[in-house]
Amino acid sequence: MGNGVVASRLDGSITSYEWDTDGDGYYGEYEDASSGETTTLSFSSDGSYTVQLQVSDNGGVSSTATATIPVSLPPEPSLTASTESIGRNQPVTFDASDSIDRDGTITKYIWRFENGEIKHGESVTRSFSVLGQQEVTLIVVDDSGHRVETTGTVSVYPKPSVDIAVQPTEPIAGTPVQFEARSDDPIDTYEWDVDGDGNTDYTGRSVEHTFWKSGDHTVQVTVVTEEGIVNKTSRVVSVDPERRSNSRRTSKRSRLAKRPSSRSA
């Protein structure tokens, strides 16, 4: 922003307008000068610039006017996403914290999405229900009123389907249980948590595990596609303690039956 230079003549007409735009004292046809009722300038760096206008009228009288124009640097926006590929309706966070203003401060962060939705803030979180490439625009405004924008895209994919098959369906404590992740989508990795601690215990589409304690056990599988789209599902597996107890009693009776008698005839 700066001061305007206005020229007028009350008792005649102005015949020439000559500008000194770099403060060297030369007007009009000289290098770095210009002529005409208006002139357009651009500045490559910030600072304070002096512009002078010299006008002459039809009576041969000349006069000058001066304006000082303060120039500030525009902000530099930076847009990053927590992931470039997401599943439908999965949240993604957009962050503008790396945006800078070299000679001032950024006062506004404005986010514009393809459906016309507007959000404000240094970072925002959003999900997308439409598949495909989705464009996001970040607009930053600094304390001098400069507005600069940049755009980015995220790819939205369908979430992969996944179910867990268990064999046997009524497992016995102390015996192996087979788990298989079934999906109609191409899966890149499978990660299994069979003890509920949130850590990966096994990898692979099919795994085997033995539960030594009876009761309900939650088994979870997390699948990831080649595009990095994540989905997970869980299943409660009930381990029967009675059948384990019966098995032990049967085994004990079998051992007793095979033990030779200590009685003498």
Rank of each mutant, 00 (worst) to 15 (best):
N3H: 13
V6A: 15
A7H: 11
S8P: 08
R9Q: 11
R9D: 14
D11L: 07
T15D: 01
S16D: 02
D20E: 05
D20K: 02
D22R: 07
G23S: 11
D24C: 10
D24G: 00
Y26V: 13
Y27K: 09
Y27E: 09
G28R: 02
Y30P: 00
E31K: 07
S34N: 11
E37M: 12
L41F: 07
F43E: 09
F43I: 12
S44M: 15
S45I: 11
S45T: 13
D46E: 15
Y49K: 15
Y49G: 04
Q52A: 08
S56Q: 10
G59A: 09
V61F: 12
S62I: 06
T64F: 07
A65N: 15
A65C: 14
I69L: 15
P70Q: 14
V71L: 14
P74G: 15
P75E: 10
E76F: 05
S78I: 07
T80Y: 04
E84P: 01
E84T: 06
F94N: 05
D95E: 06
D95L: 08
S97Q: 15
D98M: 15
S99H: 13
I100L: 13
D103K: 13
T107M: 15
K108N: 15
Y109G: 14
R112I: 12
I118P: 05
G121A: 03
E122L: 13
F128A: 04
D143K: 04
D143A: 02
S144D: 14
H146I: 05
V162M: 10
I164F: 01
V166H: 06
E170P: 05
P171K: 02
A173F: 01
G174P: 02
A181V: 02
S183T: 08
P186E: 08
I187W: 07
E191H: 06
W192V: 03
W192G: 05
D193N: 10
G198Q: 09
D201R: 00
T203E: 00
G204Y: 00
V207H: 01
F211C: 02
S214N: 01
S214Y: 02
T218D: 02
V223C: 06
V237I: 08
V237T: 02
S238G: 01
S247G: 10
S254N: 10
S254Q: 14
A257H: 04
R259C: 11
P260I: 04
S262W: 12
R263F: 15
A265T: 11
